[in-house]
Deep mutational scan, measured.
Amino acid sequence: FIDQHRAALIARVTNVEWLLDALYGKVLTDEQYQAVRAEPTNPSKMRKLFSFTPAWNWTCKDLLLQALRESQSYLVEDLER
């Protein structure tokens, strides 16, 4: 899901800070967390977050999807259609 809908997630996720907090310490290191937060816009934050995903396994991507479902369920539901 995460890889399949990358472009839509970059464009449409609005609550990136919540995602970062949910992933911090589980998937994201402090350095990665700070790097994403330093980006000026939500799309650039999501691009930076996605720059780390090639090194993630399915469990990490599932944690991101779970966080998306909790914070932006309407968006996930729309993309699952």
Rank of each mutant, 00 (worst) to 15 (best):
A38K: 13
N15A: 04
V76A: 04
S71W: 01
A35Q: 14
L75K: 00
L23W: 00
A38T: 06
L64N: 04
D78N: 10
P43Y: 06
S51H: 02
Q34N: 14
L68E: 01
N57M: 08
G25R: 08
W58L: 15
R47H: 08
T14A: 08
W18S: 15
R12F: 04
L49Q: 01
T59Y: 13
Y33W: 07
L64E: 00
R6G: 07
K45D: 00
T59K: 14
S73C: 11
E80L: 08
Y24M: 07
T53Q: 05
E17Q: 13
P40Q: 08
S73A: 13
N57K: 07
Y24P: 05
F52W: 04
E39W: 00
V76Q: 00
Q34M: 09
R37D: 11
N15L: 03
Q32S: 05
V76K: 05
W18P: 15
R12T: 03
N15G: 05
S73N: 14
A38G: 10
G25I: 06
Q72V: 06
K61D: 06
Q34K: 12
L79F: 04
Q4N: 13
S44C: 10
R37L: 14
Q66W: 02
M46I: 03
Y33A: 13
L49S: 02
L23Q: 03
D3C: 02
D21E: 13
M46D: 00
Q32E: 10
F50W: 04
T41W: 05
K26V: 13
V13T: 14
T14G: 10
Y24C: 09
L68I: 14
A22V: 07
A38V: 08
E70H: 09
L23C: 08
E77A: 11
S44Q: 14
Q4Y: 03
Q34H: 14
W56F: 07
R69C: 09
S51Q: 11
N57Y: 02
S51Y: 02
K26A: 09
A35I: 01
E39M: 12
V13M: 05
R12W: 00
F1C: 00
D30V: 09
S44V: 00
Q4A: 09
T59R: 15
L75Q: 05
L64Q: 09
S44W: 06
E39N: 10
C60F: 12
D78H: 14
E31S: 10
N57R: 03
L68H: 09
T53K: 00
R37I: 14
G25V: 03
W58S: 15
P43H: 11
V27W: 03
R6Q: 10
V13F: 07
T59M: 13
L19D: 08
E39F: 04
L20E: 04
F50I: 08
Y33F: 10
T14K: 10
D62P: 03
R6H: 05
L63D: 03
Q4H: 10
W56E: 00
F1A: 01
D62Q: 13
L75M: 05
M46R: 05
V27C: 14
Q34P: 02
C60T: 14
T41I: 03
L63I: 09
E70S: 10
W58A: 15
K61C: 09
D62W: 05
W58P: 15
R69N: 06
V16E: 01
L65H: 12
S73W: 10
Q34E: 13
E70K: 12
